[in-house]
């Protein structure tokens, strides 16, 4: 009697395909999250570097206005096509020392956005990372 090779049954195949589809879909759905996390982490690191840079600049001179950085966090002279981040530096309410009613410390609000597709990167407050710097006032003395 000749033995007959049997193939996967339709049910088996359907079952396997459904399991595979479910699993793959589920896993593939996770993949963007992982990639997002990686991208977020990279961006966050770059943003941290940008904020450190801005903080250093604020420490040596009165800084205000919008500033732009590329994807690697390198400063740009203007908003070019390479601009990946925008920073807006603006004076905030002066900070008072404890027990002192007069605000004497400079407070600087540093807002950072990566929404460069928008005309105004800072339009959506939810997408803006904000840090407050507290610095000594800039005096009328000369330079060092």
């Amino acid at each position: 009697m000749i033995q007959r090779r049997t193939a996967f049954t339709l049910i088996e195949s359907l079952l396997a395909i459904s399991i595979a589809a479910t699993g793959l879909l589920t896993l593939l759905a996770l993949l963007p999250a992982g990639l997002d996390a990686s991208r977020d982490a990279a961006q966050r690191t770059v943003q941290t570097r940008i904020l450190a840079h801005v903080r250093e600049q604020c420490g040596v001179a009165a800084l205000a206005g919008d500033f732009y950085f590329d994807v690697m966090g390198r400063p740009l002279t203007s908003r070019t096509a390479d601009a990946a981040f925008a920073v807006r530096v603006a004076a905030a309410a002066a900070v008072a020392l404890p027990g002192d009613t007069s605000g004497t410390l400079r407070s600087i609000r540093v807002a950072l956005s990566d929404r460069m597709v928008n005309d105004d990167p800072f339009a959506d407050p939810q997408q803006v990372r904000v840090q407050t710097l507290v610095l000594a006032p800039v005096t009328n003395g000369g330079t060092r």
């Binding site: 399991i19 699993g23 793959l24 896993l27 593939l28 996770l30 993949l31 992982g34 996390a37 990686s38």
Partner: peptide
């Protein structure tokens, strides 16, 4: 599927780790 899952989880884990580091 398991292999894919490992791969995806690795990607996900790396991303999360990077996020923690940042």
């Amino acid at each position: 599927v398991a292999m894919i899952m490992v791969l995806v989880l690795a990607v996900l884990g790396t991303g999360m780790q990077s996020r923690k580091q940042s």
